[in-house]
Amino acid sequence: MKLTSLAAACLSFALAGAPLAGPLANAALAETAYPDKAVTIVVPFSAGGTADIIARMAAEHFQKKFGQPFVVENIGGGGGVSGVEKVTRAAPDGYTLVLASTSNLAVHPTLYGAKFPYQTLRDLKPIGQVSVVPNVLVINPDKIAARSVPELIAYLKANPDKVSFGSAGTGTTQNLAGELLMQRTGTQMVHIPYKGSSAMLPDLLAGNVELAFDNVPLLLPHVKSGKLVALAVATPERQDFDKNLPTVAETIPGFEATAWHGFLAPAGTPDAVTDKLSAELQTFMKQPETVKKMQELGMTPVSSTPEQFADLIKTMTAQWKEVIEKGNIKPQ
């Protein structure tokens, strides 16, 4: 009883302290000289992709607000591992940030097991989520006759190992979405990884790979032009960019394979710095221009606190872990 009441007291104190923390934090902010030099935002993918676009938009905003250059640095390769790994080893001073995605944060540490160089929440400190990027299931209409998810499943069942699906790299959500589709439907396709989505696109348009899950911004112009056909979106609900497009989950209940992005700093970065960035990031995410621009690009803007982002990483890590173990997906 005593212990419980002590805990309750602590809890109430903590809750009472929460509003206080606001002004205190602000005072700390005023004292923090951060940033007094250029800040690097590492984007662990090649330039021109979705993460890169968000990073550049945010960098522009930060640069205006903080009066210091925010430099976007693209470190592609290894499915994004190289870039994130570099940030986990950077000085925890707030001058190296990373805009990482689902794969980096919730997939790789599970996928690669004990030898993997970082554990997301041990080595990185979340600042905030910025987006949900729905993956869309597209096919090359010249190669696959199916025009709906059930038709596709029937086609895949009739032609095991015939369809090649492209992805932005081993261990990306694009890759896992395809694996998930195979697992849930008991079908077999061949996975072809590329160095990022931009590199995969020409082969998808040309029909060298016939199917892919990928981001809306990349695919939408080609779906509009008719070169690709979108069958479904891999989010739980239908999306604003096309309310007529069904979800995969309508055919395969519970199917969800979205990508999301968020900013993180190396673990050990002072709270004053991450709070300052988090506050500014949330302001940026709520600006009408940001919301509009991100929707134009097929992303759902998200404004979240560091805690909410940490929770998301935890939940998603658990979810993908199950998929990876069930599918026995390992580096070939």
């Binding site: 390769g77 290894g78 499915g79 190289s82 081993t170 261990g171 160095k195 580096p331 070939q332």
Partner: peptide, 10 residues
């Protein structure tokens, strides 16, 4: 030299 994009081995 570097990470292999197929297997992500260094």
């Amino acid at each position: 030299v570097g990470r292999d994009i197929y297997t992500t081995e260094a």
